[in-house]
Design a protein around this nucleic acid. Structure first.
Lengths: 124, 124
DNA sequence: CCGAATCCCGATCGATACTG
DNA sequence: CAGTATCGATCGGGATTCGG
């Protein structure tokens, strides 16, 4: 195996907990997983729900999440294509934490904005 | 102003809550902020604490966090240089959420590993 | 018609060496 | 000890094309 798994330590780059963190540390994953918390969605619906995401990045991120067992992909094998994505139990547990992060951003972004402006003013 | 601030909605790419999320969605920010939760640290100590980070990325990320009011930089103006970083109250509140994320990764990475292996096996 | 794969470019990252 | 500069490698993301 590639990594020594001692105990889970995200500060150890050789621990695969770090891989897990890097998977999560993606702005799209942080939006996709919470979006799926309310129930299964088609790829087109996700594309509309998540503003600013491209089809490519959506598919790419979903594949990565599927690969790691966080998202389950269900292809209805119909014409026209109908593909649904839903959270696995593992994905749902992660989604809970990510929802908290999203809510933090939605609550505190004005303070970040203000700090940025203060910072710029200070250097002018 | 660049973005219409309606209400905080991370799903709206024109809301600066999205900017906040993108700032957070960095593997280094996710390690730096929790690392500072235990108290102020010097830059060298952070470099040692956070495995795999380069001096460049550490400085760069710290600057970004400082710019957004999450981290406070204190230069002791001595020779040799002594610079300390510590969380602002805002940064501390974010750190709490990030700690939860880190702990999720440390708890569940074996399940991700297993899922990846299952995925590979399925396609072989 | 919907979802995925390919090509291509700019932005970003990381290693190393250097400055104050 | 803290930060910067440079450069090659890598990644993100859009436009386009493919396939069912």
């Amino acid at each position: 195996m590639a990594k020594t798994q001692k105990s889970g330590d995200v500060y150890d780059p050789s621990c695969s907990a770090r891989d897990a963190l890097e998977l999560i540390a993606s702005k799209w994953a942080m939006l996709i997983l919470p979006a799926l918390a309310d129930g299964p969605m088609r790829s087109g619906a996700l594309l509309r729900r998540i503003g600013g995401v491209s089809q490519k990045m959506l598919t790419q991120t979903l594949r990565e999440l599927e690969k790691n067992g966080l998202v389950i992909r269900q292809d209805m094998q119909t014409v026209p294509p109908h593909v649904e994505y839903r959270l696995s139990p593992l994905g749902a547990s992660l989604s809970d934490v990510l929802v908290a992060l999203d809510r933090w951003a939605e609550l505190h972004f004005p303070e970040l904005d203000a700090a940025r402006e203060r910072f710029l003013r200070r250097r002018s």
